[in-house]
Amino acid sequence: MKKQFNPERSRGAKPKVAFFDFTDCEGCQLQFANMGQALLEVAGLVDIVNFREIMSEEGQDYEIAFIEGSITTDKDVTRVKKIREKANVLVALGACATIGGVNGIKNRAPLELAKERVYGKKSDTINTINTMPVHKVVKVDYFIHGCPAYIPEIITVIKCLLMGRPYVLPNYAVCTECKMNENVCRYEKDQECLGPVTRAGCNSWCVNNGNRCYGCRGLVDNPAADGQKDILLKYGLKLEEILQHFTLYNDSMGEKYDQAFK
C-alpha cells in the first residue's frame, strides 16, 4: 500500500513538488509559472524541487508530481510508472496529460503511416505507441484539464491537494458557466461551439474572449451525443466535420468517445 499524502505535514516541513513533461508544448507549466502573486504564496507552501522552466536544479526527492503531456513512447510508459512509484500524489496537468490532447491526432492513422509521415526514411529508428492520457498508464489523483490549464483552477487544485481533499471536477457543460457570464450564445450567431458537451471549469474562458469552445477539457461524463449532433447538423455542419471537432482533443480517449461520436 502506498503511503497517503499527509496534509498535516504542510504545516511543518513543506511538501516537495516536482514537474515532469512528456509529449506536450510545456505551455501548462508556463501557465503555472505565470500565476503571478499566487506563485509566491504557493512557493511558501511547497518546496519546488524540479521545474525545468523556472530553475536549473533537478531534485529527484519529491512527494507531489505534476505530469504534463501525453504518453507516446514505451520509454514514456516506464518513466511515468517510475514517477508514480516515488510520488504520493500525482497530478495530471493540462489536456495532453488528462485526455491525450492534440497529440491524439496520431491515433487517426496506423502507427507505421504516422511515423513515416513525420520521420520519413528514418521512421524505423523511432519508437512510438498510440497516444494515451496519463491515467491510462498510472493512477492519477488530480486532474487539471484544459489547453492550456486555467490558472484559477490550478490554484484550486493546489489548495485541495494541500488540504488532502479531492478536487471534484465539474460534471456539467461549459454552457452553464458561459450563460452565467451572460455571453451571447455562439449558436445565436450561427457559429458552432462544443460548449454543450464539454466539461466546465474554465469559466467559459474562450467564449468570453470571442472564441469558440474546442472541447479541450474533454467531454462531460455522459455527453448528449444525439442532441449535440442534431444541433450541429442543424447549423449546417457535416458529420465528418463534427467528428473532427470532437476528436481535435479527445481522439485518444478511447471507446466511450468512439461509440458516442463515430
Partner: peptide
C-alpha cells in the same frame, strides 16, 4: 429529453 443536451441554459435564464 432526446433533444436536450443538458447544457442548463433554460434554468440559468
Amino acid at each position: 429529453g432526446r433533444r436536450c443536451v443538458a447544457c442548463g441554459n433554460c434554468t440559468s435564464v
